[in-house]
Amino acid sequence: MAARSRALDSADRIYFTLAALIGSVLLVYFASVPLLGLNVAFHFYLMLWITMASAFNVASGFAGYMPFGYVAFYGIGAFTTAILVKKAAFPLFLALPLSGVAGIVLALLFAPTLRLSGIYFGIVSLALAGICRLVITNMPEQLTGGSFGLQLGSRAHPVQSFYVMMAVMVVALATILWLSRSRLGKALRATRDDADAAEMMGVNVPIVRLYGWLISAFFPAVCGGVEAWYTNVVDTETAFNTLTTAKTVIYAVAGGLGTVTGPILGAVAMVWLDELIWRQFPLLNLLILGLATIILVLFLPRGIVGTLLRKKPQWRRYIP
């Protein structure tokens, strides 16, 4: 018994060492991007996609939902920041957390959909995102800027927003690392695997799902806000672009749903690939993104990390 607990402790040690290692590598690397004069825009979006894919993982990998309208949270966040800053003259650092709050409010409005499952949930999520886009598009022009969108004015500050994005990413990753070890995370996974059985084992399924859902909605909303600040402009076409959902889903799946490292790795690999292709063949970019998705689903449905762990189950204890 004692020997076993020791083995457990050492597994934990490896797990957390690995997590800290990955965390600090990411941190040091990204922190030095503006200092070393590397491509700020590329790395800004890399961090954004890492955050998006990781947060999506909470809904899909942990809770078992496929929100195909995930972009709704991102779009709401973008418009919240833009409107608060531009129309209500809020300071940015107050507007950004409020974007997160807006995401949570929207998630609460969508909460009744959590009793749906599988494709029904996916389709409803898609439709709700469509409704969000249409509602915002048809709001008065003086509020949302109509089809021209909203300019945030002279408030752009690429390096500052870069570091804010980094902070958001760190908080998101820390949250998910905590979640994956926490009792809430276990309850979520049990619910994903068999909701009725989990309920009969004493898990308060609706509450657990709601918590997971809110975590999953908060971060994309903040991402939307930060990106609005970074690009200095928001319009419905880009803020509610379905491609945002597509990329988030694909990056998360590529890495492996249900693991902490999966979406990070997936986002890094795919964003890098995306950039490479985009530079070489700008026209083929979308086509290759589509083909990559098909190939992923057919040949690597568990993603990079998921496939690795399938082959080496004993590593599950060590890899975050």
Binding site: R183, K186, R189, A190, D193, D196, A197, R316
Partner: peptide, 17 residues
């Protein structure tokens, strides 16, 4: 009806969370 993609230990932890 086990929790398929959870370790055996985690399976046992579910009822005592």
């Amino acid at each position: 009806r086990v929790f398929r993609r959870m370790s055996l230990i985690d399976n046992l932890l579910v009822p005592v969370l």
